[in-house]
Design a protein around this nucleic acid. Structure first.
Lengths: 234, 234
DNA sequence: CGCTCTTTTGATCGGAGTCAAAGTCGGTGG
DNA sequence: CCACCGACTTTGACTCCGATCAAAAGAGCG
C-alpha cells in the first residue's frame, strides 16, 4: 500500500522556492537548502502542534496543509490552508513564541524544514528578503483583519459563500467546475466558524438554488457569480 | 475654547520613536524625521479612511487612535486601539493597497506622518529595521488569528471579559482601578463584535457580580481575577 | 462483511440581535 | 443659572439564527 515517495532534489526545491522568493542569490539559497531536509507527510499526519516549542519553519513543496487553532472546548478553527510555495510556522519562529497554531497534512505533502537560526540570519542579512517576508506577513494580516470583521458581522450563509470563494481562488476549479481541494464538511464548518450541521444545511440550500452540486467530497461549483453575490464581498 | 497645542520637536519625536525602534542610526533617523510633519488631531477627527488611497503611515506620538473596519451594513469592527509608540497604516503602505481600515482619534492625538517612499526605502536598506517591522507585524498577526478563533468560538460574555483584559493590559488602571481609556459602550460592542445592548446587559451582570463598577464612561475594575476567569484565556 | 467515520435530516432550545421607550449625562446658548 | 438638546445608556419584550442533541443513512476501509 505504501507507495515509494520520491522526494525532490535540492534543485527542485530551490526552483519552487524562487517562485515566491526571488530575492536570494545562489549562495544564500545554498545556505538555506544545503542539507536536503525534505520530509514526506502522508495525508492526516501532524506537522507541528499548538503550544509546543518550535525550532524552525516549513516550506511547502507540495500538498496541502491545514493550519488551525484549537479553542477552549477543543474545537478547531482553521486559519488557512497552505499549499505549494507557502511558508508556515514562521510567525512563531520570528516571535520566538510557542506555536499558536497546529498544522496537519490534509493531502500528501512534502515539506522542507528551515531551522530558526537559518531563517533569522537570512532576515537579518538580506533586507530584500526581509522586505518580501514583511509583504507576505502584511498580506496575511490584512486577510485576518478582514476575516475578523466578517465573522463578527456576517451571517453563516454569507461566510460559507465567502469561504467557498476563497477556496476557489486558492485551489481553483477543474474543467468540470470541481473544487480542487478535498475538504470535509466539518473542516468547512471549522473555517466558517460554525457547526457542521449548519454547513450541511446551507450546502443543501445552495444545491437547491443551483449554485453547487456535490457527490461525496467532490464539490462542483455551478454558479460562482451567485456565490460572490451571497458572500457580499466588497 | 481651543487650547494652543504644543507640537513636539523632532528630538522629542525621535526619542519616542526609539523606544520602539532602536535599530536606526542618526542619519536614518534624520531621514525619517527631517521635516517636522507632526499634526495634531483633536478627539473625534479622522486620520484616514478605508478604501482611500494612502501615501504614507503614521507614528503615534501621543493620544489614542481607533483603527477599525466598516462592514457591509455600516457597522464598525474595531481592530485595535493604537497608542504612543505605535505605527499605523503601514500594512496598506507596504502592500501598496487601498486602506483596508479607517482610523480616528478617540483622544487628542499627535501623529507624525511618514511618506511611503521613506518607509519603504528604510525597509529595503536597513535589514534590522525590517526585522523589527516583521516582528511587529507577526505579533499583530498572531493576535488577529487568536481573535478569529475567539470570536468564532467564544460567547459574547467571554469575549467582553477578554476585551476588558486587553484594554487593561494596553492602557492600564490608575490607583483607583479605573481603566485609563475612555470608551463608549458602542465602541466596546464594536470591539467585541456584538450589539451595544448586549454589552450593557453584560456589564450590568458584571456589576452585580462585583467585577466592575461604572459611573458614566469611567470603568472601575474591581476584580481582574474573575475577569480573566470569565474570559477563559489559555 | 462489519466497523467506524462522515453526511444528512429532524426537533428543540437558547443566546444574542433588534426594536422600542425611558432615563441620564454633558454641553450650549439664552 | 437654568433650560434645552442631542448623544449615550439602560431596561424590557420579542424574535430568530444557529447550536445542540438525536438518530438514521451512506461511504470508506481493513
Amino acid at each position: 500500500m505504501k507507495k515509494n515517495i520520491k522526494l525532490p532534489t535540492c534543485e527542485e526545491v530551490i526552483e519552487t522556492f524562487q517562485e515566491t522568493f526571488s530575492q536570494l542569490c545562489a549562495e544564500e539559497l545554498n545556505l538555506l537548502f544545503f542539507n536536503n531536509s525534505c520530509k514526506y507527510y502522508p495525508k492526516g499526519e501532524d506537522i507541528y502542534q499548538q503550544g509546543r516549542r518550535i525550532n524552525g519553519c516549513y516550506f511547502v513543496y507540495s500538498g496541502i496543509i491545514k493550519v488551525f487553532q484549537t479553542g477552549g472546548e477543543g474545537k478547531e478553527q482553521i486559519i488557512r490552508f497552505a499549499k505549494k510555495g507557502d511558508l508556515i510556522a514562521f510567525r512563531s519562529v520570528i516571535n520566538k513564541e510557542l506555536a499558536c497554531t497546529s498544522a496537519k497534512a490534509v493531502d500528501n505533502a512534502i515539506l522542507y524544514y528551515i531551522p530558526s537560526s537559518v531563517l533569522i540570519n537570512l532576515l537579518n542579512s538580506n533586507s530584500e528578503f526581509a522586505y518580501q517576508m514583511i509583504k507576505i506577513t502584511c498580506k496575511e494580516l490584512g486577510e485576518s483583519n478582514c476575516y475578523i470583521t466578517d465573522i463578527a458581522q456576517k451571517t453563516v450563509r454569507e461566510r460559507l459563500a465567502e469561504v467557498l470563494n476563497i477556496l476557489i481562488n486558492d485551489f481553483g476549479l477543474d474543467k468540470e467546475q470541481i473544487l480542487q481541494i478535498s475538504i470535509t464538511r466539518e473542516e468547512l464548518a471549522n473555517m466558517v466558524g460554525t457547526a457542521t450541521e449548519s454547513v450541511i444545511r446551507l450546502l443543501s440550500e445552495f444545491k437547491s438554488k443551483g449554485i453547487v452540486e456535490s457527490k461525496g467530497r467532490k464539490l462542483r461549483i455551478t454558479n460562482t457569480k451567485k456565490l460572490i453575490e451571497i458572500a457580499k464581498t466588497y
